[in-house]
Amino acid sequence: MDLDKQNANPTILNPSDLPSRRRTSAVHRRDHGGSGLFDDLIPQYNYLNDPFEQPVSSSDSDDDAVEAIDEQEVYDLISSISDPEHPLSLGSLAVVNLPDIHIIPPASPYSSISTVLVEITPTITHCSLATVIGLGVRVRLEQALPPRFRVDVRIKKGTHSTDEAVNKQLGDKERVAAALENGTLMGVLRKMLSTCE
């Protein structure tokens, strides 16, 4: 069956080499035998509640309530997405990498809109699944991050033969919305994201 795959023999990173806040998590995960890396992190963070709703000038000593999301957390949200053709995570295939995740603060003091920029590295330069992977990353972040984040997903420059075309598609809100109403494509995405829950 591997012959049908566009990249039948991808490079796979050792789980203990993946970026994580908890050095022990790799060991811990083996005990549970599942994709525990992400599960372990869930209770530690409150990013599913929009911190923007909280009054900024509250007496709460936690000054950085609004800035509760950093690159590592974004990485944790998307590294557990499954590759559409391998039973492996985007993190272990090095499709998503921590240094390629950027959080850009609001452009103006009057704005509350932050931007998350994720550059993905397809496993091979002509991988036609790059768009689907990018779409999966965008959908995952749009669902998991508070709505004050705009999500930009791009192919890392020079890693893909048609990166401009793919970037344009991934950046087009209307195309993304239409894609999510496509049952077949949604089935593929749901499968990719099933390892995130």
Binding site: S108, Y110, S111, S112, P146, P147, R148, K173
Partner: peptide, 9 residues
């Protein structure tokens, strides 16, 4: 006017 629809597009 900023944030006319809160944080939404």
């Amino acid at each position: 006017l900023y944030s006319a629809h809160d944080v939404f597009e």
